[in-house]
């Protein structure tokens, strides 16, 4: 889950140790509606391409980010 944690740490400019194992929309305080812009941008930077609509919809927590980075969600 470290790659996904790196994404959230970069998005919110915090240390990776400050990203909890259960980080998600509902549990990670910095991840609000405007913060979501930063999350999507950080994922796109990490994987080197824009996310398509289905991929954007999949982003809700660390596990979903990890799958995107691993290419599992790619449509």
């Amino acid at each position: 889950m470290s790659a996904a944690k790196e994404v959230l740490a970069q998005a919110f400019d915090v240390s990776i140790t400050e990203v909890p194992d259960d980080a998600g929309m509902e549990t990670f305080t910095p991840w609000d509606s405007l913060g979501h812009l930063k999350v999507i941008a950080a994922i796109e930077e990490k994987i080197g391409r824009d996310l398509n609509t289905e991929e954007v919809l999949a982003v809700i927590d660390l596990a979903s980010i990890e799958k995107l980075i691993a290419g599992v969600h790619r449509v």
Binding site: M25, E26, S33, L34, H36, L37, T53, V56, L57
Partner: peptide, 18 residues
């Protein structure tokens, strides 16, 4: 719109079905 990321966040966070 698919580009309206704050709106998508709000729908997903509030439990709406896609």
């Amino acid at each position: 719109l698919s580009t309206n990321l704050p709106a998508i966040y709000n729908y997903r966070r509030q439990g709406w079905a896609h």
